[in-house]
Simulated scan of single mutants.
Amino acid sequence: MDNGKEFGQGIFSDVTNHIYWLLLLTIYFVLTNVVFLFFLVTLIPSISNIIIYFLALIPTGPSISALCYSIGKLIREKEISPTKDFFYGYKLNFIDTLKCWLPLLLVISVLVIDLKYFNVQDSVSNQILGGLLLVVLILTLTVSLYVFLINANFNFRIRDIYRLSVFYCFTKVKATIGNIGIVIMTVFVMYVISDFIILFLAGIVCYALMMNSKQVMEDIELNFIKKT
C-alpha cells in the first residue's frame, strides 16, 4: 500500500536516524572528554583535587559547544553528518568558547569550594550563606546553559553572549524553568546511578535542552540577527 512515503522516509526511519546520530555525537563527546574521564575514574572525589578537575574540564567547553552546534543543526535541518558536524563545531568557535567557558568554570569552581566549606562549618550563619551560594550556583549554571546554546549557534561578541544569556534567563521564564528541570533530572539520575552517566547521556540531555530552548533561539534570530 502506497502511503506517500519513499523507503527510509517514515517515522520509524526518522526515529532510528535520530538515535543513531545522537549515539555518535555522544561517543565523540566522550572521546573529547577522555582526560576528564580519566581523572574522574582514577581520583577520589575530593575538594582537594579541584585544581586537577579544573584543568581536566577545560576541554569540556569546546566539547559542549560542538554538541550544541550539531544538535542545533539537527533540530533546524532534521539531519546531520555527525562526525563532520561535531568536529566542525568543535573547531568553529574554539577560542571564543574557551573565553566563555574559562570564566564560568572558575566561578563554578570557587562556588563549589565555598559551598563545601560552609556545609562543613555547622552554624546558622554558615547554613544561610551556604543556601545563598547554592542559589548563586544554580543561577550561574542556568546562565551557562544559555551561554553555550547561544555561542554554538550564533556569532556574537563574548560580552553580548553573556548579556543575552542573562536577559533570556529572566525573560523566558518557561524555558529557564524547563532547563533547570532537565538539569535536576539529570543530576538525580547521576546520583541514583553514577556520575559517569552524564557523559553517556550527553547527547540526549543536550537535545532536550535545545528543544526546550528552541523558542529562545528563534527569538534571537528574529530580533538580534541582521536580515540580508
Results as ranks from 00 to 15, higher is better:
residue 139 L to S: 01
residue 141 L to G: 10
residue 124 V to H: 00
residue 157 R to L: 03
residue 177 I to E: 09
residue 178 G to V: 07
residue 130 G to P: 14
residue 129 L to G: 13
residue 135 V to E: 02
residue 177 I to Y: 13
residue 100 C to Q: 15
residue 96 D to N: 12
residue 97 T to L: 07
residue 108 I to S: 05
residue 178 G to N: 15
residue 101 W to Q: 11
residue 102 L to E: 04
residue 137 L to I: 00
residue 114 D to K: 00
residue 125 S to V: 04
residue 97 T to Q: 03
residue 196 F to W: 03
residue 123 S to K: 00
residue 114 D to M: 09
residue 171 T to E: 15
residue 151 N to T: 13
residue 100 C to M: 12
residue 119 N to A: 06
residue 157 R to F: 03
residue 188 F to S: 06
residue 179 N to P: 03
residue 155 N to R: 12
residue 159 R to W: 02
residue 129 L to P: 02
residue 122 D to E: 13
residue 158 I to C: 05
residue 118 F to N: 08
residue 98 L to A: 10
residue 159 R to Q: 09
residue 155 N to W: 13
residue 151 N to R: 08
residue 149 L to A: 07
residue 125 S to M: 10
residue 195 D to V: 08
residue 140 T to G: 10
residue 118 F to L: 15
residue 151 N to W: 08
residue 172 K to C: 11
residue 121 Q to W: 06
residue 107 V to R: 01
residue 130 G to F: 02
residue 151 N to H: 10
residue 146 Y to R: 00
residue 127 Q to D: 12
residue 161 I to Q: 07
residue 135 V to S: 02
residue 123 S to R: 00
residue 117 Y to Q: 04
residue 182 I to K: 15
residue 110 V to Q: 08
residue 116 K to P: 01
residue 168 Y to F: 15
residue 110 V to A: 12
residue 108 I to H: 06
residue 142 T to S: 14
residue 96 D to A: 05
residue 186 T to H: 05
residue 113 I to E: 04
residue 160 D to V: 02
residue 108 I to W: 08
residue 128 I to K: 15
residue 115 L to N: 04
residue 159 R to I: 04
residue 146 Y to H: 06
residue 181 G to A: 15
residue 130 G to C: 08
residue 94 F to T: 03
residue 188 F to D: 07
residue 113 I to S: 05
residue 159 R to D: 08
residue 131 G to L: 03
residue 122 D to A: 13
residue 140 T to M: 07
residue 98 L to F: 10
residue 123 S to M: 07
residue 173 V to C: 04
residue 164 L to R: 02
residue 119 N to I: 03
residue 133 L to A: 05
residue 168 Y to W: 13
residue 120 V to I: 13
residue 159 R to F: 00
